[in-house]
Amino acid sequence: MANLKDLKIRIDSVKSTQKITSAMKMVAAAKLRRAQESVEAARPYAVRMERMLGSLAQSVGGTEGAPKLLAGTGNDQTHLLVAFTADRGLCGGFNGSIVRQTRTMANELKAAGKTVKIFCVGRKGHDVLKREFADEIIEEIQGLGRRSVEYHEAAGVAQSITKLFEDEAFDICTIIFNRFQSAMTQIVTPLQLIPFEPAVSDEAEEETADEGPKAVYIFEPEEDEILAELLPRNLAVQIFQALLESSASEHGARMTAMDSATRNAGDMINDLTLTYNRTRQAFITKELIEIISGAEAL
C-alpha cells in the first residue's frame, strides 16, 4: 500500500509545479498582449514598404546593373537560412517546429547539391541545430527582444546579413520564423529576402498587363539611388517584422503550453488526492478491524 506520507509529498510538489506554470501563463499572457499590439502596429509599415519596393522593382527590375540585393548574384549555389527561435524553452512546439523546418529545408537543398549556411537567431535553435549542422552554422545571435523587440536590434541583424552578402558568403537568403496567427496557432513561414521577390500575385500582374503601364513614377533622386537606400532598409524592416511576429508567437505558444500544463497538474492533483483519501480510509478501516477483532478475542 502506498505510503500516506509519500502521497502527501507528491501532492505538494505537483501543487507547487502548478503554481509555477500558472504564474508563467499569466506572465506570457501579459507579454503576449504587448507583443501582439506591437506586431499589429508594425504591419502597416512593412506592407507599405513592400508595396513601394514592388513598384520600384517593376520599373528597375530586368535592367542591367540593378542592385544585387534586388537582382541576386545570378547564382543559386549557396543558400543562407536564418532561423528565428526563442532564447527560452517551455513554449510547446514553438522552437521545435522552426528547427524541423530548417532541418528539412537544409537537407532538401543539400540533396539538390547546394551549399547550405545557417544563421541562428535565438539560443534554442542554435542548441539543437549545432548537433546536426555544426559546420553549416556561420553565425548566431542571442538575447534579442528580452523586453520588447527594438528596431535597432533588427537593423543589427540586417547589417550582419548584408555584410555576409557583400562578402559573397551566400547567394540566396531565406528567413524562417513563426508568423503569429493567434495565441493557439503559429505558422512556420519561410520568406526569401535576398534577392527580393516582389509579392505580386498573378492576378495583379495580369491586371497591369491589361492596362498597360499603369503608374509611371517620377523618381527623386534617381531610381538606383532610392533603391540603394530602400533595399537595405527593407531588409531591416522585414527582419524587424519577423522578430516581432516571432516574439508574439513565442509568448502565445508559451501561454498555451503553460495553460495545458496547469490543467494537467490540476488533473494530477485530483487523482492523487483521491488515492490519498482512499488510502487513508482503508488505513482507518484496517485499524478499526484490528481493534474490534482484538476486543472480540477477549
Binding site: M52, S55, L56, A215, V216, Y217, I218, F219, E220, P221, E225, I226, E229
Partner: peptide
C-alpha cells in the same frame, strides 16, 4: 522634406517616389 527639396503634395499630384 524631400532629399532634393521640399515637396508640396496636393490632390492629383503625379506619381512620385522620393527619399
Amino acid at each position: 522634406p524631400g532629399a532634393e527639396g521640399d515637396i508640396g503634395v496636393l490632390p492629383g499630384h503625379s506619381p512620385l517616389i522620393a527619399t
